[in-house]
Amino acid sequence: MAEMRIGSDAVTRSAAASLLSVRDLQVEFTTAAGVARALDGVSFDVSPGETLAILGESGSGKSVTGQAVMALLPKPAGSIVGGSIVYDGLDLTARPVKDVRKLCATEIAMVFQDPLSSLNPVFQVGYQVAEPFRRRLGMGKREAWGKALELLKRVGIPDAETRIGDYPHQFSGGQRQRIMIAMAIALEPRLLIADEPTTALDVTVQKQIIALLADLQAETGMAMILISHDLGVVAQVAERAAIMYAGRIVETGPIREVYDRPAHPYTRGLLDSIPSAAEIGGRLTPIVGSPPNLLALPSGCSFNPRCPFATDRCRTKVPALRQPASRGSDHAAGCHYSEEVLADA
């Protein structure tokens, strides 16, 4: 049915395999100080059963990407100014927000960073988990409640029979995130977007939540996008990674390839900055400088002021994502000097 709905030829290349195909996405935010290009030419695909990790630091645009897909960009400041988001052959950017939201309610689900503020404090969790069944599937109260209980058990809430009537504040942070996940998977979405799902949690809980997401995916075959700043957390479950910097994807490929043989100096800098990568007590090798201001991006490659490889070419010409020589066809980096970066390692 995907084929039938495709109108333009821009997406045919990936339509066959991918569930979500984002092409050359441009998002702008209008701020008091000017227009910020939050996303600039972001393209990626996610296939059913696959997990894509979108990694980046503050202001890199990783969260904006998720919001753009879900039509959750804050209005009127943020808007998609170019590119396409094709979900199952349907270009979401060409659809009214109302339609996208409707689709999101059933087929695309999202898990947010802060489970406490995403749950309504005055309703029992059972009621909240049951709501999609009642509203979207028109189930009766009793039946929906039963479904909710099933889900809470599935996501590992201990003693779910009694706890289903509790209120959000009576659960720990990890349990609240489990409840959020239960709500997200309630209608068996085909795509789950998790935006920093474990950032607010303790490490031991973090691990359990990531394992839960991986289990659920294996069970349902849904596609998953994990948005995170933590390179370690996603490494356990993601097959592919996209590294973002200043609104662009600067490197993408199978996660092992990207981590083991980074072809972009930023990816390499990130990996080198992680304390466990350096000798104990020794000096870390951080990336110099600070992330750029989106309102005043440097000319050429946005990373050039912090880059040890930068030349005049980097200061004038924006590098396109390309496959570095000697790397696999699915590994791409947006750097003029990827070969040098790889050779230097």
């Binding site: 209008t30 701020t31 008091a32 890199s60 969260s63 904006v64 804050p74 400041a77 700043h229």
Partner: peptide, 15 residues
Amino acid sequence: MSADQAVITIAPSHA
């Protein structure tokens, strides 16, 4: 995440 949110949570043109 803070800068991310600084850009996102205020609706800037509205502001």
